[in-house]
Simulated scan of single mutants.
Amino acid sequence: MKLSTGFASDVLPLIFSILAIAAVLYLCYLLSRYLAKKANSIANTANIQILERVALAQDKGLAIAKICGRCYLIGFSSDRIELLKEIDEAEIRSPEPGAGRNFVDALNAALKGRLDLTGNNGKHKNDGHEK
Rank of each mutant, 00 (worst) to 15 (best):
R53I: 00
D79K: 13
S77Y: 08
P95G: 03
K123H: 03
A99V: 06
H129R: 12
L73D: 06
N44M: 05
T5L: 10
A90H: 13
I74L: 12
M1K: 08
I92A: 11
E52Y: 12
L30H: 06
D105N: 14
S32Y: 04
I87D: 00
L35G: 00
A46W: 01
N108S: 05
Q58T: 11
P97E: 10
A63N: 06
N102H: 12
Q58S: 12
C28Y: 00
A99I: 06
N102C: 11
D127G: 02
I21G: 00
G128W: 04
E52F: 08
S17A: 14
S94P: 00
K85W: 03
T5M: 04
G6V: 06
Y34M: 10
S32L: 02
D10E: 15
G128V: 04
Y29V: 01
C68I: 03
A110T: 14
A57G: 07
N102Q: 08
S94I: 00
L30A: 13
R33E: 15
D127K: 14
I92N: 10
I15M: 12
K85V: 04
N121P: 02
D105P: 00
F16S: 06
P97G: 03
N44C: 05
S9L: 12
K66S: 12
G75I: 02
K2G: 11
I18L: 15
K131W: 02
I87L: 15
L117S: 08
K125I: 13
I87F: 05
A55H: 09
G119S: 06
I15C: 04
A46M: 04
L51E: 04
P97Q: 07
K38L: 10
F16H: 10
D10R: 15
G128P: 02
G98K: 01
Y72K: 06
S32W: 03
L56K: 07
G6P: 01
S94H: 05
A8M: 14
A63F: 03
L62Q: 01
L19E: 10
R80D: 12
N102G: 15
S41T: 09
L30T: 07
D127L: 14
E82L: 09
D10S: 15
A55D: 13
V104S: 08
V104R: 07
Y72M: 02
I64R: 09
F7M: 09
A36I: 00
V104A: 13
A65N: 04
K37N: 10
L30W: 08
